[in-house]
Design a protein around this nucleic acid. Structure first.
Length: 884
RNA sequence: GGGCGGUUAACUCAGCGGGAGAGUGCUACCCUCACACGGUAGAAGUCGCUGGUUCGAACCCAGCACCGCCUACCA
């Protein structure tokens, strides 16, 4: 390997392009339909086909990719199922906007042509997000990519709809739903975003028919009064026990409406009178049902007032509000208007204020499905991680209400229901029926509504694997191993997949659900286009490289905490990638072949030590990844690479590598260096796939892709060299102590020092003696002597490590004042520590109640501290003597 | 209204019953033959507040304060 081929700095872009193409060409992401290996599977949360990659996707898919690559390296047969979601409303909106620019609209085109236009749009732009996922390094099995509107998935949707209908779990009815006037469709309760608004509370007097006082009601939406069909009071409200009237006169409309008694009314709110508008309020709808009230729809599906609104017909709903208020005021019926904060529902797709509206829709009866989905989590078939989401899941499932699944748009799965034009019979079937089941009429019209997009994505874990056919893929990979998703779609998607998976597959869709946090901006604010604080993942990738970006995401992905992202942080981890690159670059200068078969006996201390530390970090990384603690895995390996491998190991072995006279140590050290670098690359590969693959191909003795390597096994603590770790720790402390003296005494790094170590501990002396080259080299010494305690070398600065006193000879350059100061500071620090330790040991309770090993540990600490303090004190005294 | 999370070094965050940690930033010195996207060393914290449990609390419990989020049929 020539250094020329190894650039001084890592340049990601060309490397990323090259290796991604290579992985795809070599089919390294492909899962086997059947395999003797253990199966591991994840289905991707399908991004909207209209989407562009945002930070949430980047985090979500980086995590999945880490897990999948990790499992492949462990030898599993891994399926990461990719695909996109047809995103009914969102996609329709986008295409409609395009049409508007061309001066046309979907109604001019007609349904069929419009759908065609959407498919064309998808052909053209639908792969954008897929390509962006590839930039991120996602190792999905692209050959199996699915789309929720694909033929196979559409069959699954129909099958599910028909079966649920036959089981009585889907029904059609006239109910209050949330209506978006802009998207012109019903929305499920979940699809409504509530937001606090500063509004007004209007108090309106509804007089009795004879014109007397009447009842005062309060409302935030006065325009709905036009559709009132009753006024309700609480049956026990003392204020209304003797009113002597059964009706009031609805102002503006001059309609007599009944006064009804219903315990839903809150007596403590306002005057205790409640206007009832069954067609425009969910509560009122229920009250209306209880009291057989008529429902008058005064707001149309377009958002303007209907003929039922009398003279207000045709006004926009908000204009109408102004008009109604003005008219009431003129008639003296507006008692007062007060500012009022209340929450207003908005469409989650277009942010328009939604209106509760009476409408004929299709619903899924979810209670029975939810019960099983609750049970599956209760009995552990599916585990939600972190656990805090479990309660949120239960809470929602327990309070679940029927799911409105019909949407009045064109882009989506058309509901497989046909109405007979002659007898009104409804036929629900997989295929268009030839004739009406009831009257044999051929006059059948298919339902024009389509299904909620989430209806099809609820089937994703099995529909993508070929269901309703019994495919080998399902057998191998269902239930999936894990689902990785953000909490924002816990209800939308996760809960519904649970219900559908259990109902149709008889098994939960995933064994574990890892719920991750949100990516926010630097200030912790949610990223949004309107705030202008979005960071585009692709621009981050452009600037810093995919690996640096991925490692940043992993490093900050602590469970249960949002990630605050800034480019500065990515830059920090770019340094890490570069560090790794240069460590490899250095290593390559000394490795000309593979050392797979090398005999690793008779190793030097640093060699034994680094192998032991490698073992340790392997345990840490595997344990962390097995429990979705991505940040801990990333942190562990970061520390290992930078601070153990680079800072200590590479520095420690340099003499051996450059010493051509000692072929034996040279070769064994090279072998260890090779082994450690190789395993480190494999450990790192799931996090930073590109740079590790690139280095892998520079590393002699490797064959093919790093993706085919074997992940270092977690052989637990048994392979640790405890002795080597302890010895190395001692040497590191000695070296650090000497460096500390150098730093604090302001001695030029170029000046070689003479050092004497004195210790009455034979073991300490032996280790320092045996590894004096290491100390000399790493602490930049000209000489090192190791002695029994004795005469203190003249003009020296001192440090104490364990039982050893370290004398750094500073003949001619010692600054006694500085040294005195330094030692006094050290003693002061020790004294503080000794106080806390002594306090413990003087505490009777501690001595009797604390575990023996804890007490023993504190005792040992005390004696160590005392010894150290005393040694430093002695040195301090000596200096003062000399000085005096 | 109900629930959840957060509050630890200047910043970002780990730690969650027995020695207050990391990264970034900061200070000093250094272009030492992998890396200045670097090296060596250093300074820096009543672990939000108040009580309680415990021999021992950043960590467990209760209350409070302030942020953030989710949820809800409060007209």
């Amino acid at each position: 390997m020539s250094i020329k081929e190894f650039a001084k700095g890592y340049e990601p872009h060309e490397v990323e392009k090259r290796w991604y193409a290579y992985w795809e060409k070599e089919q390294l992401f492909t899962a086997e339909d059947q395999s003797p290996q253990a199966s591991y599977s994840i289905v991707i949360p399908p991004p909207n086909v209209t989407g562009v990659l945002h930070m949430g996707h980047a985090l979500n898919n980086t995590m999945q990719d880490i897990l999948c690559r990790y499992r492949r390296l462990r030898g599993d047969n891994v399926l990461w199922m990719p695909g996109t979601d047809h995103a009914g409303i969102a996609t329709q909106n986008v295409v409609e906007k395009n049409l508007a620019q061309e001066g046309t609209d979907r109604h001019q085109l007609g349904r069929e042509k419009f759908i065609e236009a959407v498919w064309q749009w998808r052909e053209k732009y639908g792969s954008a997000i897929i390509n962006q996922l590839k930039r991120l390094g996602a190792s999905c099995d692209w050959g199996r990519e699915r789309f929720t509107m694909d033929k196979g998935l559409s069959i699954a949707v129909r099958k599910v709809f028909v079966q649920l209908y036959e089981e009585g779990l889907i029904y059609r009815g006239n109910y209050i739903i949330n209506w978006c006037h802009r998207c012109h469709t019903a929305l499920a309760d979940l699809e409504v975003e509530h937001e606090e608004h500063d509004g007004h509370l209007y108090h309106i007097r509804y007089p009795f028919p004879d014109g007397s006082d009447g009842i005062v009601v309060a409302t935030t939406r006065p325009e709905t009064m036009l559709g009132d069909t009753a006024v309700a009071i609480h049956p026990e409200d003392p204020r209304y026990q003797n009113i002597g009237h059964d009706t009031v006169l609805l102002p503006l409309m001059n309609r007599e409406i009944p006064i009804i008694k219903d315990s839903y009314v809150d007596m403590s709110f306002g005057t205790g009178g409640l206007k009832v508008t069954p067609a425009h309020d969910p509560n009122d709808f229920e009250i209306g049902a209880r009291h057989n009230l008529a429902s008058l729809k005064v707001i149309s599906d377009n958002g303007d007032m209907t003929a039922e609104a009398g003279s207000y017909e045709g006004l926009d709903r908000f204009e109408c509000r102004q008009a109604v208020v003005k008219d009431l005021d003129q008639q003296g019926l507006l008692i007062k208007v007060e500012p009022y904060k209340h929450s207003v529902g908005h469409c989650y797709r277009c942010k328009t204020v939604v209106e509760p509206n009476l409408s004929k829709q299709w619903f899924v009866r979810v209670k029975p499905l939810a019960e099983k989905a609750i049970a599956a989590v209760k009995n552990g078939e599916t585990k939600i991680i972190p656990d805090m989401w479990t309660n949120t899941y239960y809470d929602w499932m327990y309070n679940i209400r029927d799911w409105c699944v019909s949407r009045q748009i064109w882009w989506g799965h058309q509901i497989p229901a046909w109405t007979c034009g002659d007898c009104g019979e409804i036929v629900v079937a997989m295929e268009a029926p030839q004739a009406c089941q009831a009257c044999d009429s051929k006059n059948l019209v298919q339902e024009t509504d389509v299904l909620d997009t989430w209806f099809s994505s609820a089937l994703w874990p099995f529909s993508t694997m070929g269901w309703p056919q019994e495919t080998p893929l399902l057998k191998t990979f269902y239930p999936t191993s894990a689902l990785v998703t953000g909490f924002d779609i816990l209800f939308f998607w996760v809960a519904r997949m649970m219900m559908m998976g259990i109902h149709f597959m008889g098994q939960v869709p995933f064994k574990e659900v890892y719920v991750h946090a949100l990516v926010r901006d630097e200030a912790g604010k949610k990223m949004s286009k309107s705030k202008g604080n979005v960071i585009d993942p692709l621009s981050v990738i452009e600037r810093y490289g995919t690996d640096a970006f991925r490692f940043t995401l992993a490093a900050f992905a602590a469970q249960g905490r949002d990630i605050k992202m800034s480019e500065k942080r990515v830059d920090g981890y770019r340094h890490f990638i570069n560090k790794l690159w240069n460590a490899a670059r250095f290593s390559m200068m000394h490795l000309d072949r593979g050392y797979e078969a090398a005999n690793l006996q008779n190793l030097s201390l640093p060699d034994k030590w680094i192998l032991s530390r490698l073992q340790h970090v392997t345990s840490e990384v595997t344990a962390a990844l097995d429990s979705y603690r991505f940040n801990e895995a990333a942190g562990a390996i970061y520390n290992f690479v930078w601070h153990e491998f680079c800072d200590w190991y590479l520095e420690a072995i340099k003499p051996a590598l450059y010493d051509n006279d000692r072929r034996d140590t040279l070769e064994s050290t090279r072998a260890v260096l090779w082994r450690v670098l190789r395993d480190t690359l494999v450990l790192l590969h799931p996090f930073i796939p590109f740079v590790t693959e690139e280095i892998w191909h520079h590393l002699p003795g490797t064959d093919g892709s790093i993706m085919k390597a074997v992940h270092p096994v977690d052989a637990a603590e048994s392979n640790r060299h405890q002795k080597a770790e302890a010895e190395m720790a001692l040497l590191m402390e000695v070296i650090t102590a000497i460096r500390n003296v150098r730093g604090e005494m302001n001695i030029a790094p170029s000046l070689s020092l003479q050092v004497q170590v004195q210790s009455d501990d034979r073991h300490t002396r032996k280790i320092c003696q045996a590894h004096q080259d290491l100390i000399i080299n790493l602490a930049r010494l000209s000489s090192l002597t190791v002695e029994n305690p004795g005469q203190r070398p003249k003009s020296s600065a001192t440090a104490v490590v364990n039982s050893a006193s370290i004398f750094v000879s500073l003949e001619g350059i010692i600054d006694f004042a500085k040294e005195t100061q330094r030692l006094e500071r050290a003693i002061k620090k020790l004294a503080a520590e000794l106080t806390t330790v002594a306090k413990k040991l003087e505490n009777e309770g501690f001595l009797t109640k604390a575990p023996a090993d804890v007490v023993e540990k504190v005792r040992q600490k005390q004696s160590a501290l005392l010894e150290k303090q005393q040694k430093i004190q002695t040195n301090l005294d000596k200096i003062k003597e000399v000085e005096a």
